[in-house]
């Protein structure tokens, strides 16, 4: 495998477009996921996430545009791309008449692994996802979440440097979902690159190094989660709590700090570039002899940002 220096993009899509007969499903999407990062692809049903993933795994041929995954062109080097990505598809479609071991050995052999190698790799994965008890169980007897976990084991079996996971936790109980999220964190630690489609915004928030929001086949925004929130919801908000209520806040706030509301012993501020502004602001409050008990950022969720963006989109506002 080619070595990838830190920061070089393992997934690069440029102007990727897919037209089904007469329907524009994906419209000039450009994506960059650096090596060892997790990108979460967010979007409503039918936004084009699965179609994008399918183009990145060389299953669907782009109508126009190009993409490289793990350094290989998805059109010209399709087989190499497929050998270097692990894909969890939206529908897992397992073979009901096989058992877990047979199933994994079958897929292993398609990647050139012997039955023994397949099992050597599969056992730790099965243990991690709590499936080791089901090694001889027929897949038709699996529950939905178990199927999803097995599909994930299959996707990891050939040890791919790039993972494309389409809604990996959608059918899982909280515990399993947790173990999948932990697995993703660990995969990232091992330097793998992950593209993750999900409708679970808390999950996105937890895992994402980068977030891309796709709507109607277009990428609306592609940034770190913090940046996404800042862009969509404005400057971050901080709350100050004082020891005693205040009639009015002293004037002359430092540059970059705007009072949003104050109510007795509490006040909220918009602060632009907190990294630079906050130390000044703190010093200023001490100079004003304000008795500060706590000073903290008001948590904002990606969910808020996502809903905001989609609402904006749908009411016709164009996001630059």
């Amino acid at each position: 495998m080619r070595g990838f220096p830190d920061g070089e993009s393992m997934i690069v899509a440029e102007e990727l477009t897919k037209i089904f007969d007469d329907f524009l499903a994906v419209d000039r999407i450009s994506l960059f996921v650096p090596s060892g990062k997790v990108m979460v692809l967010l979007g409503k049903n039918g936004a084009g996430k699965t179609t994008t993933v399918r183009m990145l795994t060389s299953i669907l041929r782009p109508s126009s545009g190009s993409a490289r995954v793990a350094g290989f062109d998805v059109v010209k080097q399709a087989e190499k791309v497929r050998a270097s990505v692990g894909v969890l598809t939206e529908h897992h479609g397992l073979y009901g008449r096989m058992n877990t071991e047979e199933y994994l050995q079958f897929f292993g052999s398609l990647y050139g692994l012997s039955a023994r190698e397949s099992m050597q790799r599969a056992v730790p994965l099965l243990e991690r996802f709590d499936l080791q008890v089901a090694r001889k169980k027929r897949l038709s007897e699996f529950s939905k979440g178990m199927r999803q976990k097995l599909a994930l084991v299959r996707a990891l079996l050939h040890d791919p440097p790039v993972l494309l996971l389409d809604e990996p936790t959608s059918a899982m109980d909280p515990e399993s979902a947790r173990s999948v999220r932990d697995a993703i964190v660990q995969l990232r630690k091992q330097g793998r690159t992950v593209l993750l489609c999900t409708h679970n915004l808390a999950e996105a928030e937890e895992l994402a190094d980068l977030v891309a929001i796709i709507h109607g086949g277009r990428i609306l925004i592609q940034e770190t989660p913090e940046k996404v929130k800042e862009i969509l919801l404005g400057a971050p908000e901080f709350e100050v709590k004082l020891a005693r209520p205040l009639d009015a806040w002293p004037s002359g706030l430092p540059a970059g700090v705007t009072l949003r509301e104050s109510d007795g012993d509490r006040a909220r501020f918009y602060i632009e570039s907190p990294a630079q502004t906050n130390p000044h602001f703190l010093r200023w409050m001490l100079e004003q002899h304000l008795e500060v008990i706590s000073f903290q950022e008001v948590p904002r969720s990606l969910e808020q940002a996502f809903l905001e963006l989609v609402k904006e989109r749908e009411s016709g506002e164009v996001y630059a």
Binding site: T57, I59, E79, K80, R82, A83, V85, V87, T89, H91, H92, G93, L94, Y95, F107, L110, Y111, A151, R154
Partner: peptide, 17 residues
């Protein structure tokens, strides 16, 4: 049948020609 049950997509993701 494999198309209908969706089990074909994992196969398509392998390096099979």
């Amino acid at each position: 049948g494999e198309k209908e049950r969706g089990s074909i997509e994992p196969l398509l993701n392998t390096p099979l020609k």
